[in-house]
Design a protein around this nucleic acid. Structure first.
Length: 826
DNA sequence: AGAGGCAATTTTTTT
DNA sequence: AATTGCCTCT
């Protein structure tokens, strides 16, 4: 993949210059032309609170984009519209579609239109309102590994054992607290047991450490913004004045903090009603979501936000979009049959007017390698045109493989590579998690924010410059009582007691180097880089990072060191790309006028390079895995079920449908069935991504952490209506033979005998049929065979190798081995 | 100081 | 299987 496309995909939240000029006029008629009545209603109902319950595949994105375009066509200034999504990708896509609808010849109508993620909006607003939030505008956003490092340090600092209080689990407790808007103090009052009290202590100390590093974690972005909006009336008023129209997508996945932020910005509905004098029933607050697709309960999403929307906004209108335009009838029936098993659910009919469609396939495989092989074969079969099936052959980019956990991707990758099927893994963060990239970014973070202790610790001796742990400890002992940051103390290295002359001069040199990049903190002056890519390039070179990897590449001649150099070069071009695309007027956190119509009063106070660097680091910190999904690449997409939300593919394979995996083991032992229901929704989300073909697999044995374990097929396979499924047990066959079956278009399931089986003399085990396929085909019953079509059972034998004589309507009478003929009852 | 080796631990999903 | 932390050796 080219650098440019890779990088631009990672920064999709940046305002892209509108690309295609759509000549169509922005008339009400053209905006509503191909919408169903409920869809048009959702577009036209612009005033007051509105809840859109949009079932999977019901054209939700279409409605949202038309709605925004319609608002603009009615003369609503684009800058007063705020649309919030969950991923940058969703935001970027929405923005592009709105631009397309509005017609991009003139950029004016979309100026200041804010379509972004909650986290990104909060990060930007927190720069604008840093002071009321108790921050400085150049704060760093800590990712999970930074958080863990800091938390560990804090736990050690409190003289607690890191084995009694593992940073990871402490952080998850803190995260839960933050999602419920509990700060350390409030958390302490909620907690009575010993360990809870200790965690409260850690929480308080961790917060202090974050602030003194001028850093926030992901949850802080929401927590602090919610707090500022709640406490500071002037901030609240400024936001309300600007954003008159608020729209939240995937509302079922908002947590308490997000609800508060959205509702505080939306206000109470005292907004200017339309000229006709009709009183608004509340704020112009439109939320769109589907309770059946709520899959983020574990990170604090509160499904009652959507269920209780009408109670919060009694004047709210509710519109239901129920008709599915995406999937075939069998896929929809399977999805519906599954989700019906959730008890805590408002029933909602899924329906489509489409007819026909292939049945959903479920295959039991031998192990994960076999599974990966079968899936590769299946994908290949889908890509080939098949005359008898009237199927056109699906391009790679219209296919996807979903799995519950990331660890399942590896085997799949190997098999796709072996089959020469092009694929892309949706892991947007992967590039930024590389060792060398992380280090280079840590340099940039220190340049932007010298209080950032975690990043400083990372770079101070990489490459090695003679500043080891002992010397750093001494500096820290010197810094702590005076309340100095590590960097400030290093600037006064000469005063630190016990420091060797060698260490002192090494530190002076280091400080000098950083000051050279920042122009002594001014970011101004002739010797300071003028552009962001220049700065990144300079840092990579002057820090000695490049030299270090070059030296390693020379001596060890490993490929990874070459790759590392490439990655550093790629980072520079990522900065170049960012600088090209960054639109400061679309950044509510910038010094630009908040309400674009207002006259610019003061000149920007932030040096342009620093502003750019901040925005760049922020965009890097907020990249999501789903952001890396790129349909333009001609490849199959591999991703987690969570990342798949909001997408659609013509052909979808879901792997690992096993107890313990999907549903995940954590949900199986859970005290309530809430977790199990969320797993079921996750499976539902996966199924409903498929437009035409759906293939689900389970492996009988799976290697987990190097150990092969026997598995049980997922209960979800048993909950699905068998009439729309073709179930096939391949777990007793051998990989190459089974593989051939999908490859041949006319492969007859009952005709092949696993050649290896008798040759190797391995006894045939009687396999447990998948749940849902009881194996019952009584004489006289109607059955369906994938190749021969519908037929009537004339006679059956029982036992192993059971055969049945079936008279097919079109294909004549055949004797089939039940175990291999993929029969289903009609 | 710093690298390299061995042992212990790990069990999800993500902004 | 893979990462992390601790220990030893240079």
């Amino acid at each position: 993949m080219s650098h440019d496309s890779f990088l631009s995909r990672l920064h999709p939240q940046i305002a892209q210059p509108p690309q295609v000029a759509a000549p169509e006029p922005l008339s009400r008629e053209s905006l509503l032309a191909d919408l169903t009545p409920p869809q048009s209603q959702a577009v036209l109902c612009t005033e007051g609170p509105l809840l859109v319950l949009a079932a999977a595949g019901s054209g939700k994105t279409r409605v949202i984009t038309r709605r925004i375009a319609y608002l603009v066509s009615c003369g609503v200034p684009a800058w007063s519209i705020l649309a919030l999504t969950f991923t940058n990708k969703a935001a970027g896509e929405m923005r592009e579609r709105v631009y397309h609808l509005i017609g991009s010849a003139e950029q004016r109508p979309v100026r200041g239109l804010t379509i972004t993620t909650f986290h990104s909006l909060c990060a930007r607003l927190l720069r604008r309102y840093a002071v009321p939030a108790g921050l400085k505008p150049d704060f760093t956003i800590y990712d999970t590994s930074d958080q863990t490092a800091l938390c560990k340090k804090v736990i050690e600092g409190l003289q607690l054992s890191t084995s009694n209080f593992p940073a990871r689990s402490v952080l998850s407790a803190i995260s839960n607290a933050k999602n419920d808007l509990l700060d350390a103090e409030a958390f302490a009052q909620q907690v009575f047991d010993f360990s809870g009290k200790q965690i409260a202590k850690i929480y308080a100390s961790y917060t202090k450490a974050l602030r003194s590093a001028n850093a926030v974690d992901f949850d802080d972005l929401l927590l602090l913004m919610a707090k500022v909006l709640k406490i500071d009336e002037s901030v609240r008023e400024e936001c309300r004045r600007r954003w008159q129209y608020l729209l939240v997508d995937e509302y079922q996945d908002t947590n308490h903090a997000q609800f508060l932020i959205a509702s505080l910005i939306a206000g109470e509905g005292d907004k200017a009603a339309k000229g006709d004098g009709a009183k608004a029933a509340g704020p112009n607050f439109c939320v769109v979501g589907d309770p059946d697709q709520a899959i983020y309960g574990w990170r604090g999403a509160d499904i009652s936000n959507i269920l209780e929307f009408e109670e919060h906004y009694p004047g709210a209108k509710v519109i239901t979009l129920g008709e599915n335009f995406r999937s075939t009838a069998p896929i929809l029936a399977v999805a519906d049959g599954l989700i019906r098993h959730n008890k805590r659910r408002k029933h909602k009919d899924l329906f489509t007017s489409r007819k026909g469609g292939e049945k959903v396939e479920a295959v039991l495989c031998r192990d994960e390698r076999h599974e990966a092989q079968l899936v590769a074969d299946w994908l290949k079969a889908q890509s080939q045109a098949s005359a008898e099936d009237e199927h056109e052959g699906i391009p790679w980019r219209e296919m996807a493989v979903f799995y519950r956990t990331n660890s399942l991707s590896r085997v799949m990758e190997e098999s796709l590579r072996g089959a020469s099927i092009p694929y892309t893994i949706a892991r947007g963060t992967a590039f930024y998690e590389r060792e060398e990239v992380k280090t280079a970014l840590a340099y940039l973070r220190v340049v932007a924010n010298q209080a950032d202790g975690v990043s400083l610790a990372r770079i101070v001796n990489t490459p090695t410059r003679g500043i080891g742990g002992t010397s750093l400890d001494r500096v820290e002992v010197f810094a702590a009582p005076q309340g100095l940051t590590l960097f400030e103390a290093m600037q006064r290295a000469g005063e630190v007691p016990g420091l060797t002359p060698r260490a002192t001069s090494a530190m002076n040199k280091f400080v000098e180097m950083v000051n050279g990049w920042t122009g002594g903190g001014t970011f101004l002056g002739a010797q300071v880089s003028h552009t962001l890519p220049e700065l990144v390039d300079r840092i990579v070179k002057e820090s000695g990072l490049e030299a270090m990897y070059k030296a390693q590449a020379q001596t060890s001649k490993t490929q990874t060191d070459e790759e590392r150099l490439d990655n550093l070069a790629e980072l520079v071009s990522s900065a170049r790309q960012f600088e090209l695309e960054y639109d400061i007027s679309a950044d509510p956190g910038s010094d630009a006028p908040f309400v674009p119509e207002a006259a610019a009063t003061t000149a920007p106070a932030t040096p342009p390079l620093l502003a750019l660097l901040r925005a760049y680091l922020e965009s890097v910190a907020l990249v999501a895995d789903a952001d890396a999904v790129d349909p333009a690449q001609g490849s199959v997409t591999l991703m987690t079920l969570h990342a798949a939300k909001g997408l659609e593919f013509k052909a979808v394979a879901m792997i690992g449908l096993e107890e313990g995996l999907l549903p995940h083991s954590r949900a199986i032992g859970a005290p309530t069935d809430a977790d199990m229901e969320e797993e079921r929704r996750l499976c539902f989300v996966g199924i409903t991504r498929a437009m035409r073909r759906l293939h689900m697999t389970a492996a009988k044995y799976r290697t987990i952490r190097g150990m092969s374990e026997r598995t049980i097929p997922s209960r979800f396979l048993g909950e699905v209506p068998a009439g729309h499924m073709v179930v096939c047990d391949q777990s007793d066959t051998f990989g190459d033979v089974a593989g051939a079956q999908w490859g041949e278009s006319g492969g007859e399931a009952e005709s092949y005998t696993p050649a290896g089986k008798t040759a190797l003399g391995s006894p045939r085990r009687h396999s447990t049929p998948l749940p849902g396929l009881a194996g019952e085909f009584p004489v006289g019953s109607q059955v369906r065979h994938p190749q021969f079509g519908v037929g009537t059972v004339k006679s059956v034998e029982s036992g192993t190798n059971a055969r049945a004589v079936i008279a097919f309507r079109d294909a004549g009478t055949k004797t089939l081995v039940l175990e291999y003929a993929r029969l289903t009852r009609v």
